[in-house]
């Protein structure tokens, strides 16, 4: 049960930092996503991500930080196995599921739904 509390607290905190960035600098959502993604890449590259993840679980894996970490983890792992080829194949291979899911569902729902006017 305590695990879930940490997931909630850490996940919430990361998102709140995002909101602080939005309020203070007015940056757009694309920039927010990129910032947090690169943070994940960095954490993974310096080896800090896994210790945090072991403890925060979904709290850091569900935010896009986890996506960035998978990219870096994939690249590092593939370099170990395939050498230079892994530099190019590793990152996207590790995150292919997420990207493909986003593309497939976006395509399908775009065919079904229409934009709604804001109220």
């Amino acid at each position: 049960m305590l695990d879930y509390l940490w997931v909630f607290l850490i996940g919430g905190l990361i998102c709140m930092i995002g909101e602080v960035l939005i309020i203070t600098t007015n940056i757009t959502s694309a920039r927010i996503l990129v910032t947090f993604e690169l943070l994940g890449v960095f954490l993974q590259a310096v080896g800090l991500f896994d210790p945090i993840s072991a403890f925060a679980k979904a709290g850091i894996n569900v935010p896009i930080v986890g996506f960035g970490a998978s990219l870096a983890k994939g690249a590092i792992g593939a370099v170990k196995t395939y050498g230079l080829l892994g530099v190019f194949t590793g990152g996207l291979a590790a995150t292919a599921g997420g990207i493909a899911a986003a593309v497939v569902f976006a395509f399908v729902f775009a065919l079904i739904f229409k934009s709604h006017t804001k109220k």
Binding site: G11, G12, I14, C15, M16, I17, G18, E19, V20, L21, I22, I23, S29, A30, I32, L33, F36, V62, P63, I64, V65, G66, F67, G98, A101, A102, V103, F105, A106, F109, A110
Partner: peptide
């Protein structure tokens, strides 16, 4: 929610959909 629904992977999905 602002950042609360942008930062999670769901925000990525939303910005593609």
């Amino acid at each position: 929610a602002g950042g609360g629904s942008i930062v999670p992977i769901t925000g990525f999905s939303n910005s593609i959909a």
